[in-house]
Simulated assay, not measured.
Amino acid sequence: MLAIENLTKSYNRGALALKDISFCIEPHTFTAILGPSGAGKTTLLRCILQLVKLDGGRVWFQGQDLTNCSAKDLRNSRTQIATVAQQFNLVRRRSALENCLGGRLQELPLWRCFLGVFPISLLNEAMAALERVQLLDVAFQRADRLSGGQQQRVAIARALTQRARLILADEPIASLDPETAHIVLGLLRSLCTQEGLTIVCNLHQVELAKQYSDRILGIQAGELVLDMPTHQLSSSDINRIYRS
């Protein structure tokens, strides 16, 4: 589904943020990316989405070279890639339902977006997505009235409404308590196994990565230092990722 080839990105007068990174992601898998703060995990996700210009390498998504395609093809590919961020990225004054609909606004005429008149079929999809994340009862509540865990589940429901095939999650549980973190990661895991979505998730918590992921990628100082099935991860492997 996703292939990264020799990806390199530099900031701040040539300082390398990512150094010659290559890996492939198979469909319907949950991949956890581990690494210390500043290792380059967030930059990697931004490079996959082509939100920053690469210094070298290529990003392939479902056979489409995102680094050398037209703006139209890039937009089309992005519709199948959803992001779940640490700070939720919801429109705080909009309801949970309206935030879910935001994943499909690019398909609608401008007048519908402006007047808030949405097709019944799309409203039904958004409501079904909220039901899937067990938030149907708060569909009409403003996002800023919801708890952190509820807001993160709304972000996941938005990805479902978007019909995304790949979810890039950047520290999605960093602002959540331990119990809620398990709920969110368990939901992402179930979307992978039951709905066939592909998950790539930046995490700091090694034990949670071991519990929920199929595969571990380890990044240290912008370099890929580890790539293995989760069940093979050892203490020495963890030390390779987090060595000073």
Rank of each mutant, 00 (worst) to 15 (best):
E5A: 07
S10M: 07
Y11N: 14
N12V: 11
A15T: 15
L16N: 10
L18F: 08
I25K: 05
P27M: 05
P27L: 07
T29H: 14
A32V: 05
S37T: 12
L44G: 02
C47L: 02
G56A: 08
G56I: 01
V59P: 00
G63V: 03
T67N: 04
K72R: 15
K72S: 14
R78Y: 00
I81V: 11
V91H: 02
V91F: 12
R92Q: 07
R94H: 12
E98P: 04
L101E: 00
G102H: 02
R104N: 02
E107K: 09
P109S: 13
R112Y: 04
G116W: 06
V117S: 14
L122E: 12
A126W: 02
A129N: 03
L130S: 05
E131A: 15
E131I: 06
E131H: 11
L135E: 05
S147F: 04
R158T: 03
R165D: 13
R165T: 14
D170N: 13
A181Y: 01
V184A: 07
L188Y: 08
Q194S: 15
T198P: 15
N202I: 14
L203W: 06
H204T: 09
V206P: 01
Q211A: 15
Y212H: 09
R215S: 04
R215T: 06
Q220G: 01
V225T: 10
V225Q: 11
L226V: 14
M228H: 09
S234V: 06
D237M: 05
I241Y: 05
Y242R: 11
Y242F: 15
S244Q: 14
S244K: 13
